[in-house]
Design a protein around this nucleic acid. Sequence first.
DNA 1: GTTTGTTTCTTAATCGTTTTCGTACTTTAA
DNA 2: TTAAAGTACGAAAACGATTAAGAAACAAAC
Lengths: 338, 338
Amino acid sequence: MVSLKTIAEKCGVSTATVSKALNNQKDISEETKSRIKKTAEALGYFPNAAARALKTNRSYNIGVLFEEEAGSGLTHEYFSGVLNGLKVQAEKQGYDITFINTCFENRKMSYYEHCRYRNFEGVAIVCADFNDPDVMELMNGTIPVVTIDYVHHNCTAVCSNNIQGMEDLVKYIYGQGHRKIAYIHGQKASYVTKDRLASFYRTMDELGLAVPDEYIRTADYLETKGAEIQTRELLNLKNPPTCIIYPDDTSLIGGRNVIIEMGLRIPKDISIAGYDGTRMSQLLHPRLTTIRQDTELIGGEAAKRLISSIERPRTTLIERVVIEGILVQGQSVGRINC
Amino acid sequence: MVSLKTIAEKCGVSTATVSKALNNQKDISEETKSRIKKTAEALGYFPNAAARALKTNRSYNIGVLFEEEAGSGLTHEYFSGVLNGLKVQAEKQGYDITFINTCFENRKMSYYEHCRYRNFEGVAIVCADFNDPDVMELMNGTIPVVTIDYVHHNCTAVCSNNIQGMEDLVKYIYGQGHRKIAYIHGQKASYVTKDRLASFYRTMDELGLAVPDEYIRTADYLETKGAEIQTRELLNLKNPPTCIIYPDDTSLIGGRNVIIEMGLRIPKDISIAGYDGTRMSQLLHPRLTTIRQDTELIGGEAAKRLISSIERPRTTLIERVVIEGILVQGQSVGRINC
DNA sequence: GTTTGTTTCTTAATCGTTTTCGTACTTTAA
DNA sequence: TTAAAGTACGAAAACGATTAAGAAACAAAC
């Protein structure tokens, strides 16, 4: 290992001088500075992160919580997109990303304990069960935390604008001439669902459209079964909708399967719209009409805010950042005459 | 911060004793040990990772290289699945996962330099350009490296068994009665493609089936355009195949779109098979016949081997580990009479 | 000529661990 | 009784960096 000492000996100065030279302190002459910097470069010197962290209490390391019961959270396009955005931005600002977990040698440790152990300077909670006491301990701790799509009183939150997104989607569908619009929403427990559902009702209201109770249904996110059942029921109604909005692009696939099986054509006989803007949604024929959530931006913004609250804790507010979704006009919502 | 010193004072012993007690050294009496352990527990003590790493040169931290030109590598189901498997297993064995990158304050550093800076004990290369000199420097360095789906002389490699997978797939299709089988393969540059293509030829040979040159075509992985074009051309041949194998499940979607547009039915009029076993592949109707790559296992095995070569460098061989794919019998390959 | 100030560098302490070596005390063996 | 061996702990150095305080050299001011 080439350390400060190595450079100091080569240059005939003390390690203190080397340290100060490399950190651009002003009490070292320009001449010595450049001499030291040159030898450091030549020797391929890099500071030892552990030593520096120990002394300065700064690790330049951010913990990311990414946990799901199924253990497969990482493979969901939305979450992995956010993670990627976070990674790119954090790295750009000189921070590294480490996953938070609960294993410590043979015994368990809490998320919070893990963060202290590793000296994480900030934490991003991308995917977790927010009711877990361990997660709450983390949010209530003294380490800056940013949450994704979840609002907690003392954490900065970055959320996709589900209210605006749903409004845009409904208004676009309305603009295509549809008046009978059904909405299969996801699990009611989540913030995301609440926002979208409220926005759906409000927008329909604003447009002066009635929402029959039988047009509002539930199906799970990221699964097809529920959507299949609900789609079949919707299409068998005496007065079926002309357009169905699904919980997300994945569950939409289930509805799409049923529609095709029933011999109906999209969008001629029935229109459908999703939510998420997954890669897959733009590969299918016809391309789906959906709201693309800008996961890159969500993650990036989360990283920026988090780092800001690390580096400038005084001037950084705890706030709720909202990222706009983008309407993707596929071909799955057709034009009809009303 | 509660440190060894805190505990030492509370217990009226030296920090050396505390350290040795907590590390279960034998020259501390059982009585003192338990007394110290109890107070440590009570005070919520956790060692400082930086201090420990500095002294012992062990960081219990593994670097993961996950880089793609597009910057979206993380959102591809195969890679993120591998990463997840790696994460789960590494954590189980007490190691943390940190992403490798090239940003250091204002200047660039190489991957290898980053690893030394952070004291990574091992490196997993999940997704990277293996021709990049930076990546090669990493593979040729002194830190243990495991590569995924790539073989390098002094790194342990974990690879999906594309040879067996393709053989299983072709034999299954043959078993369903097909004799005219076309294969649209991915970019020829990759190891993966080479293995699959060779295995395709070999298996067809073994089965005594001819492979007309016009049945072998190229299209990009993870995209639909190429597959669309090739599918159309294949179906317009004078003597079209009865079954088409695609580069992967994603590109298959393109072929599937074309087939549906042409008014053909799957699998009645034409059979198709993919590769990967993505979540999506099992949501579509009919469910796809494909080879599921066990990403969880690939990542898990990579972590195990890597940690083994960290902890027992002497007894660990550099080897090539092969993970079997699993044939998923969907309904997209039909039974026909030959 | 003494004081004061500046510039440039060094000394030494420190962060929280681990670990080598030494020491005091107890036990066993001759 | 005394030497040897064993047990249980402490003192201090070390890992590689940062930083407060001090010192040497020289210039400027009275």
